[in-house]
Simulated scan of single mutants.
Amino acid sequence: MSNAIELSNISFAYNNTKPILADLNLTLEQGKVYSILGPNGAGKTTLINIMLGRLRPTSGRVSVLGHQPESDFCRQRVGAMMQLGGLPLQTKVDEFLALFASYHQTPIPLERLISLCQLAPFLEQTFDTLSGGQKQRLFMAIALAGNPNIVFLDEPSVGMDVESRQQLWQAVRTLKQQNKTVLLTTHYLHEAEALADELLVLKEGKCTKLNDIPELANTYRRSQIKFTSDLSAAALVNALPMIDLNVKGDQFTILTDEPNHILQQLLEKFSIRNLYVAPMSLEEAYLSLMNARSA
């Protein structure tokens, strides 16, 4: 299997500040799906922009399909769905598809693109009438319009309902079957598990492969319970001695594998406000795992 992207000893800093990336080495193979994670500010966007040729590294070498990433060769063979601010409001979906296809030498046939991204029901709608999930499907179609060998998908399922997310997942699997290389950023571990062949972790300027997905998945399945209260941390720990607790002022966060039991105890024994319950995000699961290892 040939390599789609090779980064050797990549470093990057803005205006002689502390390096965001430091002697980073990374190889992405053709035909694989990768998911990248890391804490906010780790440099994920910077790394992607270097691979897209939008930024030049301070030092090191970048090869995309054997060429410089900013070359015309790569621009015709690399697609990117980034977090776009928007598109002209009164333009129709089918007009966008025709326009972006015209920018490429060998675009994907429109019928196949429409089918792949499930756009048929709203081709005649203008951008301002699309839902968040429909806009995400359109952005993905724009990224795929040139029939690229490498595709960057930045938070592609944001704003999508369950059905749309499943259709997106099927589209990514189809890209893999076509021997495309996909680099995916997501906050949903179940999405990364379902789609990625490899998880990449960016931390302190370095990029490493995460081999213990099951361990991270077990951590991720924990829930976080957040609330405000005037009670003391000692009172809470005395009542619930086995909880994983973090306190900042009157802000309480509990991490637990038994959210129903903990909630019942909290509501029966204490006066709490601003209650919030949710699964841990992908970054939170990763950071929780790394902190547990370093403790």
Rank of each mutant, 00 (worst) to 15 (best):
P88D: 14
Q265V: 08
E155S: 09
P259G: 01
E193Y: 11
L282F: 15
L47D: 01
Q118L: 01
N3A: 06
I142G: 02
L199C: 06
L99Q: 09
L130N: 12
P39M: 05
T186C: 09
Q177R: 14
G159V: 12
I225H: 12
G85A: 10
L65K: 01
L200T: 12
L87P: 12
T253S: 14
N15H: 13
L99I: 09
T185C: 04
A145M: 03
D154A: 10
E193K: 07
N260C: 01
V64D: 13
L245I: 08
F139I: 06
R77W: 08
G79H: 04
S59C: 09
Q118I: 01
T174K: 07
A194Y: 12
N291K: 15
A141H: 03
K135S: 09
S164H: 12
A120C: 02
L89A: 15
N16M: 07
L216N: 05
V33N: 01
E258K: 07
Q178G: 05
L289D: 01
N25Q: 05
L255V: 01
A120K: 15
V158C: 07
G66M: 04
E284K: 13
I50H: 11
T181H: 07
N274Q: 14
F270L: 08
L116Q: 10
L183S: 12
P121Y: 09
L236F: 06
E191R: 08
R56C: 01
